[in-house]
């Protein structure tokens, strides 16, 4: 499905096949009024990594993610696929995002296949950093559907095992099923960066484990680079290969075994922290 090489993020403005980090954050600070909710954070996401942002409540994890995605104003610099955030153009379509609170009207008349299809954009558009003549309009004629769209939707639903739910209204899904549908929404076209903001809040432990297994499988197959916010340190140490410990500032970063050391956790969470471990 994804025809692009999964093992390289190519700088769109460069003809050379120079490998650039999928995401580069430099001195990022986010103010909420006069309060700096996130302060002077810098890091890079190498291609194909699965990175978790952990930290206590109020550490600024979601704020950081929202700033990186351009949902909040910030100071500093963010580059995605080698392009500054403000000049991403159609490269935006290569970012998949599952938000923390996917709250919606349970009576919203939208089927699973329709929701998955909303993530689809013509591939020709998605590989260019240049802005189209009418940026962000993505005009489509309702009577002229792209012949590649329906097979892409079906394939995405099959990959996350929700094809049997295709005609079900999204309001009739369980929490775990909804997360899979949102994953299919990201999967329906080639993406390079997948951002999950506590995407599994409210999902039971088994559902969470199944989701992570699926996510890692898809990451390998499609060459995704994953950035996720999580509270579950046990799950993070099992499934992620990099960890950023945040408490307004970046306390530490590295592989799970070093970043989640007792001393680092004490620095990030404070002295009252105790770690609960569960087994899957």
């Amino acid at each position: 499905m994804n025809s692009d090489p999964p093992d390289a993020a190519i700088a769109p403005n460069s003809r050379s096949k120079e490998i650039t980090p999928v995401l580069k954050v430099e001195n990022l600070t986010v103010y909420q009024g006069t309060y700096a909710a996130v302060e002077d954070v810098s890091f890079e996401l190498p291609v194909g990594t699965n990175t978790a942002i952990v930290g206590p409540n109020g550490a600024g994890k979601s704020t950081l993610v929202q700033a990186i995605l351009g949902l909040l104003p910030f100071e500093g610099a963010v580059q995605i696929l080698g392009c500054p955030l403000s000049r991403l153009g159609n490269l935006r379509y290569q970012i998949g995002y599952i938000p923390q609170n996917f709250v919606f009207d349970r009576g919203f008349p939208l089927s699973v296949s329709e929701l998955v299809g909303l993530g689809w954009v013509d591939h020709k558009l998605s590989n260019s950093a240049q802005l189209p003549v009418f940026p962000h309009w993505r005009i489509t004629l309702p009577w002229k559907t792209n012949p590649r769209k329906a097979p892409a939707i079906a394939q995405a639903m099959e990959q996350v095992d929700i094809y049997h739910l295709r005609n079900r209204a999204i309001g009739n899904l369980s929490g775990g099923q909804l997360k899979r549908v949102l994953l299919a929404h990201c999967l329906v076209m080639p993406r390079r960066l997948l951002v999950l903001d506590e995407a599994l809040a409210g999902v039971d432990l088994q559902g969470e484990a199944d989701f992570y297994t699926l996510l890692n499988q898809l990451k390998r197959e499609h060459g995704w680079t994953v950035l996720q916010v999580s509270h579950d340190l046990d799950m993070v140490s099992h499934h992620c290969d990099r960890v950023l410990c945040l408490n307004r500032r970046l306390v530490c970063q590295g592989q799970p075994e070093e970043a989640l050391s007792p001393q680092n956790l004490l620095n990030a969470y404070g002295p009252s922290f105790s770690r609960y471990q569960h087994h899957h």
Partner: peptide
């Protein structure tokens, strides 16, 4: 002509913004 975008921003503004 912008039906997909209208539905997406009605459903979730954050996802719609991320998708441009």
């Amino acid at each position: 002509l912008t039906l997909d975008q209208q539905i997406l921003l009605t459903l979730n503004q954050a996802i719609a913004k991320v998708q441009g």
